[in-house]
Write a protein that binds this DNA or RNA. Structure first.
Length: 373
RNA sequence: GGAGAGGUGGCCGAGCGGCUGAAGGCGCUCCCCUGCUAAGGGAGUAUGGGUUGACGCCCAUCGAGGGUUCGAAUCCCUCCCUCUCCGCCA
């Protein structure tokens, strides 16, 4: 109609009456739009906090006790001597100092020195090399601070605000809780061509987590820290391939444990233990002699279209020629702090030293043994 | 941090409050011409969403969000980002 005004005016006609008839439309339209907007916002808010639907293959259960073991690898049998945990080992070696970290910052941090620090770095290098050279992941470097939209995209916000470290509030920048956030969000508002799928990224970053609600848990040692390193695997795939991709990705993470010679088992998380965004998750649990139990060292998930929907990550489906949601996956490959703990405890000797696993020696200048001094 | 400039289609680049979803150029696609290469002529060419068997039609989009107006790429406000100079700095 407004177009008509212009046309008639150009033709020299009188448009006063037409304009008068339209005068009331504006306010009415605005009113209706406001109502619609309100309803849509409400709907969005509600939907933002609804978790993903578990896949049909996910076992039912209410807690981690109902997770289902899939397989085991390696021999977790006891050495003949009395084993120490990583805290005693590291402290007695003079290479791990929790008190210092408490002084510098607070609880749930660690300071390391010397060969232990090098071992920590060696683990990172080793994992990055295996995943890039043997599993065809593209090494990726990303910001460690992200904005709210990124955390929304992968599902940490709005529901898990209390787990994040907020640094600035104008604009809101958060320390990343995992590389999953920046890496997956590379594809936010992006339509990728089918040729570039699957997109595979491997990314080493520090991770920062408040660990809210885990106050009494794992207070000893490096198992649960506010800051830890992780080498993360992220895949974006054709939706018809995502379940196969989850198996592959989990295998890529497991191979690291095998190369390191660390006994582990694979469990499928039951629906009660499943994360907010995941449709299915395999946890890799490494054997820790110091705790006499398996502990999570990697979590590999298929999110199907859940994250993709939140962030608008799409591909051009060749069968229709139209943009369609991708499927996203990720998994730790592996958590570095816990891998260090596992190496220390599994490779300890009777005299409190640590044998360096074969595959890490090239990364440590050939060092075979970490000993005092 | 200080001072300026600017964000328009795959790219470059115009744009008066009203037939501008957007001139022109480049690029790309198809056709014609030309016995090579090159040049030349013509036509077409934004994206996303919805709808249709299909032609098509409808909606949204000129950094983002608000506002003014019957009508905004164009005017006003807020924010984001980019560039240049200065300062600072790994």
């Amino acid at each position: 109609m407004s177009k008509e005004v212009g046309q008639r005016k150009a033709a020299g006609e009188d448009v006063a009456e037409l304009m008068k008839s339209m005068a009331g439309i504006g306010p009415r339209l605005k009113d209706v739009e406001a109502t619609l907007g309100g309803v849509q916002a409400e709907l969005r808010t509600l939907m933002a906090e609804i978790p993903n639907l578990p896949h049909t293959s996910v076992p039912a259960g209410s807690s981690e006790h109902d997770n289902v073991e899939i397989r085991r690898w390696g021999d977790p049998s006891q050495p003949v001597f009395e084993v120490k945990d990583h805290v005693d080992l590291g402290t007695q070696l003079g290479m791990m100092d929790f008190d210092a970290a408490t002084k510098l910052t607070g609880s749930r941090f660690v300071v390391m020195f010397g060969a232990l620090s090098t071992l920590h770095r060696a683990l990172i290098q080793f994992m990055l090399d295996v995943h890039t050279r043997e599993h065809a992941y593209r090494e990726t470097y990303v910001p460690y601070l992200v904005n709210e939209r990124s955390l929304f995209g992968t599902g940490q916000l709005p529901k898990f605000e209390e787990d994040q470290f907020l640094t600035t509030s104008d604009p809101s920048y958060y320390l990343i809780p995992t590389a999953e956030v920046p890496v997956t969000n590379l594809y936010r508002d992006v339509i990728v061509e089918p040729e570039s799928l699957p997109a595979r990224h491997v990314c080493h970053t520090p991770c920062f987590r408040q660990e809210a609600g885990s106050y009494g848990k794992d207070t000893r040692g490096m198992i649960r820290q506010h800051q830890f390193e992780k080498v993360e695997l992220v895949q974006l795939v054709d939706p018809s391939r995502s379940w196969a991709a989850l198996e592959e990705l989990t295998a890529h993470a497991a191979i690291i444990l095998e190369k390191l010679g660390l006994p582990y088992r694979v469990v499928t998380l039951c629906d009660g233990d499943l994360g907010f965004s995941a449709a299915k998750t395999y946890d890799l649990e490494v054997w820790l002699p110091g705790q006499q139990r398996y502990r999570e060292i990697s979590s590999c998930s298929n999110f199907e279209a859940f994250q993709a929907r939140r962030m608008g990550a799409r591909w051009r489906d060749p069968s229709t020629g139209k943009p369609a949601l991708l499927h996203t996956l990720n998994g730790s490959g592996l958590a570095i702090g816990r891998a260090l703990v596992a190496v220390m405890e599994n490779y300890q000797t009777a005299d409190g030293a640590i044998t360096v696993p074969e595959v890490l020696r090239p990364y440590m200048g050939g060092m075979e043994r970490i000993d005092r001094g």
